[in-house]
Simulated scan of single mutants.
Amino acid sequence: MKLLLHVSTAFVAGTQEGLLLERAFHNGETLREGYYLDIEEELQLVRNVKTELMEALSDSSEKLEKSKMKELGLKRACHFGWPNVYTFTKAMGEILLGQYKGELPIVIIRPTMVTSTFQDPFPGWIEGTRTIDALIVAYDEQALPCFLGDRNDIIDLIPADMVINAALVAMAVHWNGKLQVIYHVSSPCQNPLSVNDFVDSCFDYFSISPRILNGRVLQTRRPYLFKRYAFFRVCLMIIFSLPLMILEGFNLLLCGCFSRYCNDLNRRYNFFTLLVKLYAPYPFSKGRFDDSNLTWLRMETKICNVDGGNLNFDPKQISWHSYLISVHVPAVLKYAHMKKGTTLRRTSYSYSQ
């Protein structure tokens, strides 16, 4: 083996602020000062808890066991300073690679929020919806009345083909080296996208191609963005909690006549709070990922005669407004509707690179 390429995530940095460098984790390093991460101890803890659960629960409690293990994972992640299990385990993977790599050269690719393809194999290729895509789908369904964030914040998106191209070029450059190299594949240092521009682009798309129900065009509303969590909680109370309390009161008095409405509102509230819990740390992160190594790699493609023209990973070439309204947003909605088995409206807006 000449080289090992590992795809991680830039969000192994957690919720740190400021400029985040392309550096490796040290053995035992965590995001909380004074804490030491022993991966073997963590694995043993998982085995012990799972054994205890299997002894205490019946065979029919597999769902409960899964839920308990998720709770344990989140608890341990937060204990060491990571916001969720995904970033926690990605960081552990990087630490293990550093421990056992020996003389093998390691290239670690840390993309930020990966979106649909910019060019290859064609604009808008996507497989699955995650992070920012979930917010787009919720926006389309008008299930996103408000969210946490500042319109002046920067959203760190990068198309999938640029991540792949960067990985291919990195392999070509480092295949005969002896170092561990880390690349942040991100966009803000080269071509920043503000929250305001992102929201405006989504709104423009939904205005051009609105939802239609029973022949009636549904109005698209802009979500409110709150900088402060306290104001956000007040908004949730007004939109969800108070109406739900009133409905449940009437439902109790009228022997369950409003059960369907209560269940629907409760489902929407649970979905929305889950959305905030899972994705708020990513779109509105205050950290900025340094891409000095990636800038060097783009220059190195010319020296090493790597075809950088065909393997494009320069975010400066992206017009975010055109890309979002003509490529990414329709691609996300098409995939989401395909998974649900529903029909997606079509937009006549043309994409130009």
Rank of each mutant, 00 (worst) to 15 (best):
G18E: 09
L324H: 10
Q219V: 11
M113E: 11
S187H: 07
A331H: 06
S61G: 03
A172E: 13
Q180N: 09
S58R: 13
C189M: 13
I238V: 15
D156A: 04
W320T: 12
S209Q: 14
Q142C: 07
F203T: 11
A167C: 09
P83T: 02
P159R: 08
R288Q: 10
G287A: 11
F80Y: 15
G256C: 05
G98D: 05
A170E: 04
D314A: 06
R298Q: 05
Y100G: 01
H337F: 06
L311Q: 11
S58K: 13
S326Q: 08
N312C: 14
P188M: 09
L265D: 02
N293K: 05
V114C: 05
M237Q: 10
K75M: 01
E141H: 13
R211S: 12
E29F: 04
K70A: 00
L324C: 10
E22W: 03
M54L: 10
N263H: 12
C255H: 10
T131H: 06
P121Q: 08
I212R: 14
T342H: 04
C304Q: 15
S352V: 12
T342C: 08
L294P: 03
K101R: 15
P243A: 09
N305H: 10
G73I: 01
L144G: 00
Q119I: 14
A336C: 06
R130A: 00
L31D: 04
I164H: 10
L148A: 10
C78A: 11
N270L: 14
A77Q: 01
R76N: 00
L43W: 07
L193M: 08
A143H: 10
N176V: 07
V12W: 01
T9Y: 01
F88L: 01
A170W: 04
M245I: 14
L157N: 01
N312R: 09
K340M: 10
P283T: 02
F118E: 03
T131L: 14
